[in-house]
Design a protein around this nucleic acid. Structure first.
Lengths: 206, 206
DNA sequence: TGTACATCAGTGAACGCGCGTTCACTGATGTAC
DNA sequence: TGTACATCAGTGAACGCGCGTTCACTGATGTAC
């Protein structure tokens, strides 16, 4: 609590600051760019100080990956909340579902390296479940579609796998710039094509 | 050409053997597992000998990634060729298209680590274009669908992006075991769901 | 309110390992005459 | 057919760096009495 202008010996919230800096490294260069020594230097602390708060690099990576997933989920939620309310419940549910996918893809293309970090598996779990959780955001949007009758209840789980696969697929393809030459000329058009395709695949025949 | 039983001083085809061993490492542990020193030891040669044939690690990785993509394409082709010929051209085209996707996913789940290596970008290109090329295999199967009228010609490029995204998406999700808990319970069922979804999204309304 | 002491949170230096890469070299091979 | 010599393809040792991690330590903080 003491706020001496010169850095106090006890930092106060080193763990949070280290995690923040680690996320910064992952944002800039992906999971492999997280470097404990550079991290310590950035934060202004000796390398060994970090070990007071974190078991080892894998533990830190589990936290970084979780932070990345939560930011992904937050981007999806922001998209959903930005959707206005028309009178039509069906259209609103569809718009929110699409916004979920658009948010996912936007995060992947806008924060490519952090997106990669989100799926990094250090071999140990984070301290708590993801909150918010991307899978739950998707599930919620899909539940809405079922409620308003756009997706048949019996096809709910099929639809979720389909939607997730297509959206995750275009995201990783764009993020890794794979096939961007041969198959994908215009990224924006590709995204819209995928979203239309998902809708066609998922919507119950009227 | 001399076939002295004891290892001859001149190896003969070191480059090919080294590449083969490197692909073996990638198959076992992904792109990061490719290790020049271990490689040299495996092949029975000193580390520096490798540099007679390969510029640096990145160059080798470009070749490994290419080999992985070609194996992926070969798996797709094998699936296509295993499809029997019925009388119906439409059904055959559809079956071959599905076989393409199934081959892709089978490679991703059967050779997870090598699949990851296929999309590794070392920052320098391989010496020659991929042959066979996964993108071309997909394109050929899709062209067939257009020919028999299952896919509208105007929607060809949209369909290819959609199909590739969905198939690549389920492949990476299964390969990285992401979401396997929350969304994907039965992998086989998930694969079929995605393939059905792609067909629904891609097929022209009859 | 003051003092003794356990505990927490840092420092600074160094260890140790693995890995890509380089260097000076030597053995084998092919070609000109 | 034999010899001289350039060239190719290896060896073996070492460099150098970066990185995660550990160790003995010291400074700050909180608590019991």
């Amino acid at each position: 609590m003491s706020v001496s202008s010169k850095r106090p010996y006890h930092h106060g919230n080193l763990k949070a600051v280290v995690l923040g800096a680690a996320v910064g490294q992952a944002r800039a260069g992906g999971p492999d760019a997280v470097n404990l020594r550079e991290l310590a230097h950035t934060v202004g602390v000796s390398p060994s100080a970090i070990y007071r708060h974190i078991r080892d690099r894998d533990h830190l990576m589990a936290l970084v990956a979780q932070a990345a997933r939560q930011e992904l989920a937050a981007t999806m939620l922001a998209g959903v909340e930005a959707v206005g309310v028309s009178g039509d419940g069906r259209l609103d549910a569809i718009a929110r579902f699409a916004a979920t996918g658009r948010g996912y893809i936007a995060f992947a293309t806008g924060s490519t390296q952090l997106f990669r970090a989100a799926f990094y598996d250090p071999g140990c779990p984070p301290d708590a479940p993801d909150d918010p959780d991307p899978a739950q955001v998707l599930t919620a949007a899909l539940d809405e579609l079922v409620e308003v009758g756009v997706v048949a209840a019996a096809e709910r789980s099929e639809a979720s796998v389909m939607a997730w696969s297509a959206v995750h697929g275009i995201s990783t393809l764009l993020a890794e710039r794979a096939l961007v030459g041969p198959l994908i000329v215009d990224p924006e058009a590709a995204i819209e094509a995928v979203l239309r395709g998902v809708f066609k695949a998922v919507a119950a025949p009227t």
